[in-house]
Design a protein around this nucleic acid. Structure first.
Lengths: 230, 230
DNA sequence: AGATGTCTGTTGCCGTTGCAACATGGATGC
DNA sequence: GCATCCATGTTGCAACGGCAACAGACATCT
């Protein structure tokens, strides 16, 4: 299959970011990836199984979710074209902690891990860059998880909210920012009840720490917030 | 400096596991690592700073800790000879979330990340194996963190304990096992108060789920425990 | 407009758990 | 033996936050 039409998508992945056409040509020749189409609802990756390929979303949407001990599903992330998944898994001997499902009809590219980790004898400079990208990608995921743990170990809800707010403000480089998360989504990330989150945000507004309406936040007293991070 | 005397230690690292002397010779020539001695209490890696080298403990003990928002320190891990640190950090553009300190006088080997990620033109098979080891190491750290998150998002303490117990039993491949963690240490890992942990363990013993004395655990009703996981 | 559904805020209830204080028991040193 | 120290278990109290139920705001559809 000719992948040229998807080069624009590939360039958006963290793995192949910004590579030229000729570079992608070379990589695709080395990797000999396979392409597969999935129908909405089909499983691309099943929790509990090993996997030796990385997936890239070419068309459509996928979602990754965990099976909770009580049989439910918790969505971890959504991805569209350019999304990379199974990257950490494929290089490890672990069994997948998540399942990946086609959210819509979609098309996925599968890259064999062994071909990625073992550069061919030609030692293409592009391949070396790609390896660096791979490690960077995994590292970033590690640090994102680490920040999550940082949040979760805070005992008080107010502390978790304060840390999150300061993080977001730093990320947005402004004390006023908007996020696309719903309250329920934010509650899930902060690992608390939605109503408890609303209640605490109300209290924090009463205390003059911030103003918020739906997805918009305005930090009024960052020092005060920092004092709550305990 | 001649590293031969430390080859036995190097072979114990997850990065250079089981490599022959001649392979280590080659790698050390490629990496041109530096060695440095540290006095007890000296800082090897400071939280908040970037780093482009991986560290291997050759002699002595080190500890990694986080600076909590309220100024305290929380020890994350200890390492002795053969310990690898800064591996995730060195390949990322993040600033370190932990500091690393010499717990005793010690000797550390520093490998430049760029030399590791970019195999030399000779394309040594050993180097390719090492790259695979690197990705495996980082991936394993990722999954360990992921399991930690899995624990932390459980709302009830009993659920966290149950998950931990079942995990340990699986790891020990036996329903009876012992761990070196103290109650206080376990409480910290489970993110709860030490007394609350003791209390809950007592209740679980009353409920006939397990028996425990200090670091020894004996699971009596694994199905019962699984039912408590959330 | 009216109906419907979703997101958000509010409140009462009460269980779980953090915190503090104390008891016990094993280990080590003198 | 006796003193000391540390790890662990126990318990009372208070409160944080989960849960459930309801109300209001807003979007979408017909």
């Amino acid at each position: 299959m000719d992948l040229k039409p998807y080069y624009a998508v590939l360039r958006q992945t963290s793995l192949l970011r910004g590579m030229r056409d000729d570079e992608l040509d070379t990589m695709m020749q080395c990797f000999a990836p396979r392409v597969r189409r999935y129908q909405k609802g089909e499983i691309l990756l099943l929790a509990g199984f090993e996997n030796r390929e990385m997936g890239i979303v070419l068309e459509g949407e996928i979602s990754a979710f965990k099976n909770t001990p009580d049989g439910g599903n918790v969505v971890i992330t959504h991805m569209g074209p350019g999304g990379l998944f199974g990257d950490v898994l494929s290089g490890s001997s672990e069994r997948s902690p998540v399942s990946v499902m086609a959210q819509t009809d979609c098309l996925a590219l599968w890259l064999p891990y062994q071909k990625i980790i073992r550069p061919c004898a030609k030692l293409h400079a592009t391949h070396l860059q790609l390896l660096q990208n791979l490690v960077l990608t995994i590292s970033n995921k590690y640090f994102a998880l680490d920040r999550r743990v940082e949040l979760l170990i805070c005992k008080s809800l107010r502390a978790r909210i304060a840390i999150w707010l300061l993080d977001q403000a730093e990320h947005a480089k402004s004390d006023t920012f908007a996020v696309s998360l719903t309250r329920a989504g934010l509650a899930e990330y902060l690992n608390c009840d939605r109503s408890a989150l609303s209640r605490e945000l109300s209290r924090m507004q009463k205390d003059g720490l911030l103003e918020t309406y739906r997805g918009s936040f305005k930090l009024l007293d960052k020092d005060g917030l920092r004092a709550q991070c305990q």
